[in-house]
Structures are given as C-alpha cells and as structure tokens.
Design a protein around this nucleic acid. Structure first.
Length: 223
DNA sequence: GCGACAG
DNA sequence: ATCTTGTCGC
C-alpha cells in the first residue's frame, strides 16, 4: 500500500495536483466489479478531530460487507480546489484497515470536474491505483442545462468546451447529482454505476452508508 | 470590484 | 462540513 505524503503548504499541494493530474485514466481499466466502497469524513472542529470511514458493499446486492473508521487530527484547512488534501489522509487510513481492497470507490465530491481536473475522487484513485467515481451533491465548476425531471435524465457538465462530467437526476423531481470520472473508469460506466447505486435515494448507497457511519462515529466520539 | 466556491 | 424544529408523507 502506498504512503501518503502530506503537503505542508498550499504551494506544495498545487504542485502535487499538477504533477499527478496527468496520471488520471479516463477509460475502463478493470475486469469484474464485485465490491464497491463508499467513503466519507465528518469533522469536530472544536477539537480539531476528523473521522474518516469506508464501507464496503457487495456490488450485486448493495449490502454492507465490511466497514472501518479512523479518528485523527485535522491536518489541512478546507479550501475549494484543495479539498482532497483535507479528506484523503483519514480516507487512506480507513481503507488500509479493510481486509480486502474494493474494486471501485465512489467518492462524495468531484473527480475530474475540477479546475485542474484533479478532484477528490481522482486524487484518491491515483494514490490507491483503484477505479474511482466522483459523485458530488453540488458543483465545483462548470456550466450545464437543467436535466429533465425524470429519473435517469442527465445533461453534460461543461468547462473549457470540454465535457467534464454529467448532471444526473437519480430520482424523479429530486435535485440532481454531479458525476465525474475519478480514475480508471469512463464517464459512461461511471454513470451506469451511480444509477445502479441509487435504486431508491438521491445519493449512492455507498455514500449514504459511509455518511451514516462517520456521523455515528463522530457522535460516539463527542459523547 | 463583484460573485462563485466539492465538504 | 456544521448549526437546528417542525412537518409532510408513506
């Protein structure tokens, strides 16, 4: 498993983004997807603590197979565009605790739908060399037409005349999500997986499970 | 100078 | 992210 080298300054972080952004792969580079992981982080700003968690789901049944969480000290401030440097340390450590690595990881945030085409999902995917999808609740950058109201309707997320992701309506009349390539997957396949992961709710089952886990853990920590 | 701004 | 009550609906 890789060792994460945390940047000390914003300049370092920007440098790391620039050098790693070229290594992102936007085509399907995998065989069978049997397990899918969801990751999330929760903060206790008062005590400078962060809880990171990963939930491993069976790709077929969407049932939880295993889950791990970690508690550490917040190491980087929240800066739009440098968001990944804040969340990756706890996420890497939580994933390291799993008994097996996932075949695919769905992130709560953007993949290449980022100013430098290197959002959270891409960063995590490159570091772990695992396929990842970015599925954010709101956009970071880009322009788009509002997708139709039906479940499955989608539109292109554009930036610099390039399609950087899809705005996907996962449920009828519900606010859409922003899907983008993280690493080692095509946007078409990424959208297909997000659709499979949202049979009933707006957000992917992976994200929902991970979100619940970090919030339970944070609550227990503060209690 | 005025908005926008992943979680 | 987090701060927060009630409320509408299955």
């Amino acid at each position: 498993m890789i060792q994460y080298d945390a940047p000390t300054t914003q300049e370092d972080a920007l440098q790391i983004q620039t050098s790693l952004a070229n290594t992102v792969i936007m085509t399907d580079q995998f065989n069978e997807i049997d397990t899918i992981a969801g990751v999330d982080v929760a903060y206790d700003e008062d005590n400078d603590q962060v809880v990171g968690a990963v939930v491993l789901l069976d790709a077929k049944t969407l049932q939880v197979i295993e889950s791990c969480s970690v508690v550490e000290t917040i190491s980087f401030p929240y800066i739009p565009g440098l968001f990944s440097f804040r969340e990756i340390p706890p996420l890497i450590n939580a994933i390291k605790k799993l008994s097996m690595l996932p075949d695919l990881i769905v992130c709560d945030g953007q993949g290449i739908a980022h100013p430098k085409r290197f959002g959270m999902a891409s960063h995590l995917g490159v570091l772990l060399d695992i396929p990842t999808i970015g599925c954010g609740k709101t956009k970071l950058i880009g322009e788009y037409e509002t997708p139709g109201a039906c479940k499955g309707s989608m539109s292109d997320l554009m930036h610099d005349e390039t399609i950087i992701g899809k705005v996907l309506r996962t449920q009828k009349d519900i606010k859409p999500v922003f899907v983008s390539v993280g690493h080692k997957i095509s946007i078409e396949t990424a959208v297909q997986w997000i659709e499979k992961l949202t049979p009933k709710y707006r957000l992917p089952e992976t994200t929902r499970q991970a979100d619940q886990l970090v919030n339970r853990s944070l609550k227990a920590l503060k209690a």
